[in-house]
Write a protein that binds this DNA or RNA. Structure first.
Length: 499
RNA sequence: GCCGACUUAGCACAGUGGUAGUGCACCUGAUUUGUAAUCAGGGGGUCGUAGGUUCAAAUCCUACAGUCGGCACCA
């Protein structure tokens, strides 16, 4: 039947269904097709609340080696109201799009000559640095030592680590005038192993925690690039913890606690953890993978137990890194979208491959276990997630520009400058707007730029040493004494870990 | 990388074969203003890049690049 119609893919499906198994065909008027079912008895059952959304190519059976078919996307709801709600949700996501907000708030831009790379503007870079400073404090407190390793190393180094074999296609390389081939680092781990290897290490040095805000380069497929969320050059809050085998549980739990407390500081409390196990393409013996997977499974069980079941988990077979299995931390944002950020990976392979060892109690050389972990993951991506989560309305401590002092008449300029200096002295990020414009115009402009605090000052305020406070998202105006305002905003702008 | 669409001024967009436009932004002048757009004037584009068709190309064709939506990928 399908052969007569020349439908080769259908024939393939029919052939795949074993003898004796039911094969179902549904029909709708003159149209009929193969389907596992069930189908509606009539298209009338869909009702009017449906919408065709888009069409796009999709690989036959999800494999890029196969030909592509055209797929038409449509969606239907029981009522028009539900369809409208769904469409509003899409619209809401579009309004929060970090690419749009990044332009409107003057945070960053992209251009053709550097696909997948970011030009950070002063305000965006301020936000980025705020995140790094916060993370640096957290890591120092947790006993990490920050380092910096080379951005480029010779190709043979990456062959030794196994990266060239597994990901060489996606590495940036360059041939120098002396003919040596160098690769931009796609990961920081091999560099950190070199630092570990420098000088003999004792079991007494473990756990040894090496952290780096390392910028890594990965030649991502052109079609996968997406604003800040998927780029070719990004900064990881990366760390490698060198330990003995019996320290795995304790260290992974410490990482877990730090991870959850950090996410909480950004308002993410709905966390979900996935365990990814050995992939097909991997290095190392199976008995080591058995140990590593068991260790992470134990950690995951303990984490769930401690959270009283609040933390949901899932298993992703075959999704681990080539050197070890991983736990992946997924956060839920303000409009319910999920973002994978942090990762904890247990690795029995890399240290050995790169010749790292420590001296144990019996003076024997032992290969350490490595934990790879990142909490923000990619700083660039995390910045994008924050922009979307807050829709640009950052809490005061994160806002790149926290306060604008806008004058009502030019007579108030000297007082406005005084106000600015008072806020600067308190460590706040503040600018004056003394342009010859109406206050309504200034309020509109700074509101659109999502400045959290607008202080209007006219002669009334100058004489009384007050400011008129207007918060982003509210029409309300509060007249307050300058000194009180500075104190209140200084307190509010304090990062959560310093408060 | 694959399928499809798109690319015109800083931004948002109009212009389907015959002398490149609108709004906002920008610059100049006037206005000194009390909480989401004051008024008037002015400057700004080899229409993504490179070829081709045509008397004539932003417009039609080809290639390349980038972007967008999916797919695949994501150490």
């Amino acid at each position: 039947m399908f052969r007569d119609k020349g439908e080769l893919f259908k024939i393939e499906l029919v052939d795949a269904i074993s003898e004796g198994q039911d094969l179902k065909i549904y029909n709708q008027g003159e149209w009929f097709d193969l389907c596992r079912g069930p189908h509606m008895t009539s298209t009338g059952g869909i009702g009017k609340a449906f919408k065709l959304q888009k069409f796009a190519g999709a690989y036959w059976r999800g494999d890029s080696n196969n030909p592509q078919l055209q797929r038409i996307y449509g969606t239907a709801f029981a009522t028009q109201e539900e369809l409208d709600a769904y469409l509003r949700q899409i619209e809401e996501a579009e309004k929060r799009d970090h690419r749009k907000l990044g332009r409107e708030m003057d945070l960053f831009h992209f251009q053709e000559e550097a696909p997948g790379s970011i030009f950070w503007h002063p305000k965006g870079w301020t936000l980025f640095q705020t995140l790094i400073n916060y993370m640096r404090r957290q890591q120092q407190k947790a006993g990490y030592m920050e380092v910096n390793s080379p951005d480029m190393m010779e190709k043979h180094f990456w062959e030794l680590s196994g990266h060239w074999e597994n990901y060489g296609e996606n590495m940036f390389t360059t041939t120098l005038p002396d003919e040596r081939v160098f690769c931009c680092k796609p990961m920081n781990c091999p560099g950190h192993v070199q630092i570990f290897k420098h000088g003999l290490k004792s079991y007494r040095d473990l756990p040894l925690k090496i952290a780096e805000f390392g910028k890594v380069h990965r030649y991502e497929p052109s079609g996968s690039l997406h604003g800040l969320l998927r780029v070719r050059h990004f900064t990881q809050d990366d760390a490698h913890i060198f330990i003995t085998e019996d320290q795995i549980m304790a260290e992974c739990l410490k990482i877990n606690d730090l991870m959850l407390s950090i996410y909480k500081d950004f308002g993410f409390e709905d966390i979900f953890i996935k365990l990814s196990t050995r992939p097909e393409k991997r290095v190392g013996a199976d008995h080591l993978w058995d140990k590593a997977e068991k260790a992470l499974q134990d950690v995951l069980n303990e984490v769930t137990k401690r959270s009283n079941g609040r933390i949901k988990t899932a298993l992703q077979p075959g999704e681990g890194a080539f050197y070890g299995p991983k736990l992946e931390y997924v956060l839920k944002d303000a409009i319910g979208r999920e973002w994978q950020c942090g990762t904890t990976q247990v690795d029995f392979n890399l240290a050995g491959r790169l010749g790292a060892f420590y001296i144990d109690e019996n003076s024997d050389k032992v290969t350490p276990v490595m934990i790879h972990r990142a909490m923000f993951g990619s700083l660039e991506r995390f910045t994008g997630i924050l922009i979307e989560n807050f829709a640009g309305h950052f809490p005061l401590w994160l806002a790149p520009l926290q306060v604008v002092v806008a004058t009502i008449t030019s007579e108030a300029d000297p007082y406005a400058n005084e106000v600015v200096e008072a806020f600067k002295a308190a460590g706040l990020r503040v600018e004056a707007d003394i342009r010859n414009e109406k206050i309504g115009y200034k309020v509109r402009e700074h509101s659109l730029a999502k400045v959290p605090v607008i202080l209007a000052v006219g002669m009334r305020d100058a004489e009384a040493r007050n400011v008129s406070v207007r918060r982003l998202g509210s029409q309300e105006q509060t007249v307050m004494a300058l000194a009180d305002t500075v104190a209140a905003f200084k307190k509010e702008a304090t990062p959560p870990d310093l408060g």
